[in-house]
Structure formats: C-alpha cells, structure tokens
C-alpha cells in the first residue's frame, strides 16, 4: 500500500473550493448543496413503498407523485457528482478504505454509528427547517451575502461549540 497523501493546505483547499463555487454560480446560476438531494432520495424511497400516501402528503406531495420525477433535480445530480469526486479524491490520495472514523479513544463501533445516525437525523430535520445545510446555506448563501444564510452560519458554529463539551468522549 502506498503512503497516504497529506491533506491540502486549508487556504489552498478553500481557494479551490471557492473557485468551484464561483464556477457553479457563473455557469448554472446556483451554488452547491447536499441536503436537498437527501430529502428527494428519502421521499423517493417512501414513494416506492407507499405511493398514494406520499403523493397526498402535505410536504412530500410537492416532490413525488404521478407525473413528477422525484430525482429530476439539479442537487440530485450534483450530489451524485460529490460522491464520485469524493471517491476519486480519496482513492487517488491513498485514503480509501473501509473503516469507522473516530477520536483517539475510539468508541465501540455500534456507539459511534449510533452517534453518526443521531447526528444525521438532527441535521436532516435542521436542513429542512433552514432550507439547506452547510453547503447550501452557509457556503452558498454566505458567498451571496444572504442575510438569513449568515445568521444560519453563525448559529451552526454556536450549536457546535455549545454541544461540543458534552461530546468530548467521542472526539478527544
């Protein structure tokens, strides 16, 4: 096995990230995102199980129903790309292997995965409430100087710092 490549310098990484974001604005007119695709994926899965209920639902019915293709959305394609790009980045840097990430004193795998799921669950709800996540609101809306996005970004950091002391065991 070859050596893992080091991460990019954060300022260089941020600069390239900014260029990608700028390119997205210039070419397609919108920024980056992630949670919107997760929502459509979930609604699509639910639609396969219970089409009538989903199509008639107040929230889900907006995305899925007869004559609507739940995956026909820019973010779905973009997140497909994020997956491919992330895989390429990891493999070409010698970082791709199956594993569970954790702090220096790893939790039992089931505990770490339970935390991962719980955190994901919270973020899924939060992203629907805030109309986006760190990519769609903080990064994209931040660069567009949207007032709500800046409020969102500050609150993300606030929430993280507030909760961090209670989760030291996981990360420190």
């Amino acid at each position: 096995m070859t050596q893992e490549k080091p991460f990019w310098n954060p300022y260089v990484g941020g600069f390239v990230l900014g260029l990608v974001l700028l390119g997205s604005f210039l070419v397609v007119g919108n920024g980056l995102g992630a949670s919107g695709a997760a929502n459509r994926l979930g609604v699509g899965a639910a639609y396969l199980v219970a089409p009538e209920t989903v199509a008639a639902h107040e929230v889900f019915g907006e995305y899925a129903g007869p004559g609507k293709n739940v995956l026909d959305d820019w973010l779905v394609f973009e997140v497909l790309g994020v997956f491919l790009g992330g895989a390429l980045g990891a493999y070409s840097a010698g970082r791709m292997r199956r594993g569970i990430q954790g702090g220096p004193r790893p939790l039992a795998p089931w505990k770490r995965l339970a935390f991962a799921f719980a955190g994901g669950l919270l973020m899924g709800v939060a992203a629907r409430l805030a109309r986006g996540c760190t990519s769609g609101q903080a990064l994209t809306g931040g660069a567009l100087l949207s007032a709500g996005s800046w409020a969102f970004m500050m609150m993300v950091f606030a929430g993280g710092y507030l909760a961090a002391p209670f989760l030291r065991r996981q990360w420190r």
Partner: peptide
Amino acid sequence: QVAGGLLLGVGFIVSGYCPG
C-alpha cells in the same frame, strides 16, 4: 434558519459531519 442552524450545529458535532 436560526433554529435550523443551531440544530444542525449540534448534529454536526454529534455525527462528526455535515450533510455534504
């Protein structure tokens, strides 16, 4: 967005990731 941000920040440190 204030409430969503706060909740997402908590989810971030619980899971270790943001959605993207």
